Amino acid sequence: MSRNVLVLNCGSSSIKYQLIDADSGAAHATGLVEKIGSVDGVVTHREGAESARIEGAIADHAVGLTLMRQAFADAGEDLNDRGVIAVGHRVVHGGTTFTGPVLIDDTVVAEIGELSVLAPLHNPANLVGIERAMANFPHLPHVAVFDTAFFADLPPAASTYAIDRALADRHGVRRYGFHGTSHSYVSQEVASFLDRPYGELNQIVLHLGAGASVTAIRGGRPVDTSMGMTPLQGLVMATRSGDIDPGALFHLHRVAGLSVDEIDTLLNRRSGVQGLSGVSDFRDLHRLIAAGDAHAQLALDVWVHRVRAYLGAYYVLLGSVDVITFTAGVGENDARARELVTADLEGLGIAVDAARNTAPSREARVISPDGSRVTVMVMPTNEELAIARATVASID
């Protein structure tokens, strides 16, 4: 019998969902509830080759979940008849409180709420989704899976900011890391694909999407990651700046007159590739570059420079590297980006075979030449499956 898990990822105005068989990995259905709080909300539901769309006002997450259930029923079978054994929830920030998946109860709900101060853009929305889903599915166990959990044991040298220690401790100022569910899943899948013991591999995982991060993993444990106290630190992203001199923020406040909230919006929503080029999608970026747009070319150059800088730093940190893996939207699908990131690194044992790199595929694959000192791979991430598996493990 299938052990199906309903996986929910709730944002402030959206609900992403999947119904997944945690054992086989099959996604029976996927969907997205968009524009919650709007009169022109949309639910898009897919099962196999079939898709359906519901349009209309979606007042809140409770209505969104009701419409999700309607979409399942319209597709032929109510969710109650789908063999769902649990609901798994993506939660962005677990702080130092949650170091692994946890069965949700009233205490956990309260603690996730308290952690909202560390993730004001994410945790409140995650929490609303949890509360509404628990009301919709009161007889099912609900499990929270945290983006930060994989990095709970980062070495102190990697997790500590060099500011006043007492102040940092009092306000939770430290590096937490994010995309942990993806980095954990991908690194384990890489070991399985290569038929190598997970605990014996030194890996660098490049999660390159709209949000982007890189993690150094030694023997199955992360030793550093590019994101910090928030998902803003590190690589250049679609709309986020990544690393920036903190002094530049004081300058923008004092000289340009930007408020704290305006700086927050600037760095999270109007920076990165979007801020430099005017577009955030790499397909659009490549089209602009082909048309001779100098701003788009600079945006790509800055993006590549930052990725390579972190790649080199983590190579040194690990001492030796067995596998470098590309994952997420850009990492999995953009051969040109992979080519630029790995160019002229043969002296480090890193090379990419041009034919393998450009061959169309959505499967896990090695793209380095045979016999390379460092294996370079593309591994599709599947955070929803990872959440489903963690959910089942938490209730077994």
Score class of each variant (00 low, 15 high):
residue 153 D to C: 09
residue 319 G to L: 14
residue 19 L to M: 12
residue 297 Q to H: 10
residue 115 L to T: 07
residue 41 G to L: 13
residue 60 D to E: 11
residue 269 R to I: 10
residue 25 G to K: 12
residue 136 N to V: 10
residue 89 H to V: 08
residue 125 A to Y: 00
residue 50 E to T: 09
residue 20 I to L: 10
residue 391 T to G: 10
residue 279 V to T: 09
residue 21 D to A: 10
residue 319 G to W: 13
residue 221 R to T: 11
residue 24 S to Q: 13
residue 231 P to H: 05
residue 88 G to V: 11
residue 390 A to E: 13
residue 181 T to I: 15
residue 17 Y to G: 02
residue 395 I to E: 00
residue 129 G to T: 00
residue 391 T to R: 08
residue 183 H to R: 03
residue 177 G to E: 02
residue 372 S to T: 01
residue 85 I to S: 04
residue 247 G to N: 03
residue 295 H to F: 00
residue 279 V to K: 03
residue 316 V to M: 07
residue 206 L to D: 01
residue 130 I to W: 02
residue 282 F to N: 02
residue 387 I to M: 01
residue 105 D to Q: 11
residue 290 A to L: 10
residue 144 A to V: 09
residue 246 P to Y: 06
residue 47 E to Q: 15
residue 261 D to P: 06
residue 261 D to Y: 08
residue 337 A to S: 14
residue 283 R to G: 14
residue 393 A to T: 13
residue 222 P to C: 13
residue 38 S to R: 15
residue 298 L to D: 09
residue 2 S to I: 06
residue 66 T to L: 14
residue 223 V to I: 15
residue 248 A to R: 03
residue 145 V to Q: 06
residue 149 A to F: 08
residue 333 N to H: 15
residue 176 Y to P: 04
residue 225 T to D: 00
residue 27 A to K: 14
residue 201 L to E: 03
residue 343 A to Q: 12
residue 291 A to N: 14
residue 251 H to V: 10
residue 340 L to W: 07
residue 145 V to E: 07
residue 17 Y to L: 06
residue 283 R to H: 13
residue 345 L to V: 08
residue 98 F to D: 03
residue 65 L to F: 07
residue 262 E to I: 15
residue 34 E to S: 13
residue 364 A to N: 03
residue 57 A to W: 08
residue 12 S to T: 10
residue 127 L to N: 09
residue 361 S to Q: 05
residue 306 R to F: 06
residue 348 L to F: 10
residue 181 T to A: 09
residue 144 A to S: 00
residue 178 F to L: 11
residue 166 A to S: 15
residue 263 I to E: 11
residue 114 E to M: 14
residue 290 A to D: 15
residue 383 E to Q: 05
residue 321 V to H: 04
residue 61 H to D: 04
residue 394 S to M: 12
residue 30 T to D: 11
residue 41 G to I: 11
residue 396 D to C: 12
residue 262 E to K: 15
residue 377 M to F: 03
residue 289 I to D: 02
residue 174 R to G: 07
residue 200 E to W: 01
residue 84 V to E: 07
residue 277 S to I: 03
residue 193 F to L: 04
residue 134 M to A: 09
residue 213 S to Y: 01
residue 30 T to S: 14
residue 258 L to M: 15
residue 173 V to Q: 04
residue 4 N to R: 15
residue 273 V to M: 07
residue 187 S to A: 11
residue 108 V to N: 05
residue 109 V to S: 04
residue 231 P to F: 02
residue 249 L to P: 14
residue 109 V to C: 13
residue 329 G to K: 10
residue 394 S to F: 01
residue 387 I to S: 00
residue 213 S to G: 05
residue 122 H to R: 09
residue 142 H to Q: 12
residue 162 A to N: 12
residue 318 L to Y: 05
residue 235 L to E: 00
residue 182 S to Q: 06
residue 17 Y to R: 01
residue 50 E to F: 08
residue 117 V to G: 08
residue 129 G to S: 04
residue 112 I to V: 14
residue 79 L to E: 09
residue 42 V to D: 06
residue 107 T to R: 08
residue 227 M to V: 06
residue 11 G to S: 11
residue 4 N to M: 09
residue 361 S to L: 05
residue 258 L to C: 07
